[in-house]
Amino acid sequence: MVRIGVLSLQGDFLEHIEILREMGVEPVVIKNVADLKGIDGLIIPGGESTTIGSLVMMRRLERPIKELADSGTPIMGVCAGAVLLAKKVIDRVVGETSQVRLGLMDMTVIRNAFGRQVNSFMTELEVEGVGRVRAAFIRAPAIVETWGSARMIAYVNHLRLGRFGAAALQDSILAISFHPEITSERKVYNFFLSMIKK
């Protein structure tokens, strides 16, 4: 059985675990370095990126996760997870932040790009390789720039704010700014699972 780790320090890891179980994949709760052994993929869930980042550092998970990525194990970062994956992070209000991050992807994200919680929204969009999905953007980050081997695979057109990157792919690392677990969007998980080398 395929074993997918879900980083369970803070955030909505339960929703990811439940949907993986429903799909016949074995979810593995990741809280310590030892838990990372023997997993076929890793999901970094949504939550507060500053909280997850500081817990990642306190538990010294930074280097082991980087090694996991270097070994070609697929990683999916959702919302806060995408923020943690980015090399460069800017907050819409506060500006460039020095928050802890993994910095595995060649991209710049803007935190809270669409505004505060009252501006959180639902929409539909097309993701390259996945198809059309229902997307929940919750105090979501936007991917504004990619370089190197990273490239955008989805955009969202916001009537007031314009067009932003909503998902990016770099080799076997996937960053998504919306929440597939909130809308039970299995297509996204199937796409992620297909990245696992047989």
Partner: peptide, 17 residues
């Protein structure tokens, strides 16, 4: 914007915090 699903979803992100 701000439909119930993104309200419950937002709160869900607080879990474990």
């Amino acid at each position: 914007e701000a439909v119930p699903l993104v309200r419950y979803g937002f709160i869900s992100m607080f879990k474990g915090g």
